[in-house]
Simulated scan of single mutants.
Amino acid sequence: MASKRSQPYQPLLLRILHGITSLFAIAAIVTAFWTYDIYDGRWGRIYLPKYTEIEGIHGTFGLWTLLIFPLFVFYAFNRGQHRLIDSNSLVKLAEFGKPIWWYTLHRLVNTVSILALTLAVFSGKMMNEKWLPEGELNHVWYYVHLVGWLILVICIAIHLLMNIKVGGVSLILSMFNWRFRSEDSPKLWRRNFSIWRDRFGMSTVKQWLQSRSLLKIIEIFVLVAIILAWIVSLLKELLF
């Protein structure tokens, strides 16, 4: 199915990975607030129904987010890197009020959103599920986790506003359009993956690691954080 070229178009794989990641992240945010409202509430609460299983549900959504997140990160920092900050972002941000300033700010918000989600899922893995039910509310990782989700909520709100400013409502709606161009067909994914796998080697990894660009440094930081989150999670299962 080919989409009209005049309409905003988002690659199908981006829509899928972005959609699933967003769905799980938003579900985790909602259940995170519910958990906070039941077990904490020191900075305000709305007295949601006391559902003791909500923390486990929150953890499940957080886990699903962590499962799909690496795929989204890999796509975003490679095929989708033109939607993130680049080496000239600081220079472009000096052109306040111009269209390039808004586009650059949009890319900056996209990048910060990925970092915020990284902080949220990583800090969540550092926590113990028994802390809140037992009233242990002063652990450092719990505060970090709260801050991470708060930053993520702010980033999502600004991300939506930036989308409307840069591309209008049609840009947001394009993320929910399931039409795709012929060159973007899922039938080609297997072939494209095979081509990428055949070209992949130690020289590619070495070149990737030697890159000094800010975006590559952020990508490495995010991927290392995700790997450490899984290592810590496995160690907790084995040792406790």
Rank of each mutant, 00 (worst) to 15 (best):
R42H: 14
W34C: 08
G201V: 01
V153M: 15
F74D: 00
A116H: 06
L215Y: 07
N88I: 03
G97P: 03
V121G: 07
V30R: 09
F33N: 04
S22F: 12
E129H: 12
E136Q: 15
Y75C: 07
L132T: 06
G62T: 05
I85F: 03
G97I: 02
L119M: 14
I38A: 14
T31V: 07
T118D: 06
Y103Q: 06
S211I: 01
V30Q: 09
L115K: 05
T31D: 03
N110W: 03
R212S: 08
V30D: 07
Q81D: 00
P70C: 08
T31G: 08
V147I: 15
L119T: 14
W178I: 05
I38P: 14
E129N: 08
H145V: 12
L48G: 06
L137D: 01
V153T: 13
V144D: 09
F69G: 04
W189Y: 14
L13C: 00
T52V: 15
Y143V: 01
P8Q: 00
I38L: 15
L171H: 09
P70W: 00
V144Y: 11
T60P: 01
I227C: 12
I164A: 07
K165G: 02
Q207Y: 11
G19L: 01
R45G: 13
T204K: 14
H82L: 00
G62M: 02
S3L: 07
G168K: 02
F240R: 11
Q210P: 03
K165Y: 03
V224D: 03
T104Y: 04
F176Q: 00
G167T: 00
A120D: 08
F240S: 13
W149R: 11
I29R: 07
A2R: 13
G124W: 01
V153N: 15
K187M: 08
L228P: 00
R179N: 08
L152A: 15
K165H: 12
V169A: 09
R179F: 03
A2G: 12
M127A: 14
G97V: 15
S123E: 01
Q210C: 05
K92R: 12
L117Y: 02
I20G: 02
E237N: 09
R5G: 02
L188C: 08
G62S: 04
E183Y: 13
L150I: 04
L48N: 05
V73D: 04
N78C: 06
W149K: 14
V169F: 10
W149T: 12
F221I: 05
S6I: 11
T65A: 15
N78G: 05
I114H: 00
A157C: 05
L115C: 08
G201M: 08
L188T: 09
L239G: 12
L63F: 12
Q81M: 05
W189F: 13
L160G: 10
H145E: 03
S213E: 07
G148L: 09
C155L: 05
L173R: 04
K206P: 00
L13E: 06
W101K: 15
G44R: 11
E183T: 03
